[in-house]
Amino acid sequence: MTPSPRPILSIDGAVKRFGKTVAVDGISLDIRENEFFALLGPSGCGKTTLLRMIAGFETPSAGRILLDGADISPLPPEKRPLNLMFQSYALFPHMSVRQNLGYGLEMEGLPKAEIARRVDAMLATTDLSALADRKPDQLSGGQKQRVALARALIKRPKVLLLDEPLGALDKKLREKMQLELKRLQHEVGTTFIIVTHDQEEALVMADRLAILKDGKVLQCGGPEEIYERPANRFVANFIGVMNFIEGSIEGGVFRAGGQAIEADTSGLATGRPATLAIRPENIAVHSAGNGFAGEVVDIAYHGLDRQLYVRTGLCDTPLQVRVPASNGAFAVGATVSLGFAPAHCRLFQD
């Protein structure tokens, strides 16, 4: 299902103040129907507060939240046609899996037979049928996570909000559940908004993501766009691994450590400091050549690839360079020549 451009949820200048602290500082975002949207940022960036405002647990200090064009800000949580999957899962401990799933439908006043039918269907979809009569404390972390998801999805929300849904799971299970979540999202055809601090998770799952810092959106776009063309230094640093080379623009050319590096300098102020950012996989490394000379000071083997740490005259910290694991040509102490493709060099002046 390709996301349609129609916005289902619009956040319009949302502000949330707690006393003197501003948790959400004027955020505007359009979330499109059926898309998987991620709110990504470090802890304290306001992403959870924003999610809780959408769910109705926090009242915006200013701004509006529109669902299908209607302002839902004045509605209490139980009146909003969207559901939240809690970070702690918040399963009712005194109810079985089946009762947990049925709770939300009971609140809609549906007939018993209808509830039973929909619960059974949801149990099957989420592969929980065998656990239907268990209590939450008889479930593993991954099973609880699925119950929490099923309990929210069964309400057929227009938007499903997920607060760090995979945060409590171990790495293997996380990766499995990332794909599982995407599959479910396609299957039920609902808009998902996920809050996470894990940039890898956001890149893998989201159709689009917004990077938040200090209550503001720094960049919003698709994973590739954000990875390839980060809007500023913070985003560049937060997403993936990035090398930063401090220098300055002189005569329309970026210079660092007395050497010029070819990059697009259009729109940058000349005679002022600038930072060049380049990803480890975009640095070419040769044993000899006319690139930037460096010395391998450390090598980290990651299985799939090797991370070389190369000291150069360009900056104080060694540059990280990624080469395929099969490439065992370089040893610690070897002198190498590095090449930066100009298209992959990004300059920031902030």
């Binding site: 769910a55 109705g56 647990f57 209490p76 949580p77 139980e78 559901n83 939240l84 809690f86 970070q87 702690s88 918040a90 399963l91 009712f92 401990p93 709770y103 939300g104 609140m107 809609e108 309990r151 929210a152 309400k155």
Partner: peptide
């Protein structure tokens, strides 16, 4: 856990 009460509200109670 206060989130249990929020979950209940969220589910329509």
């Amino acid at each position: 856990n206060p989130e249990l009460l929020e979950a209940s509200r969220d589910l329509g109670a």
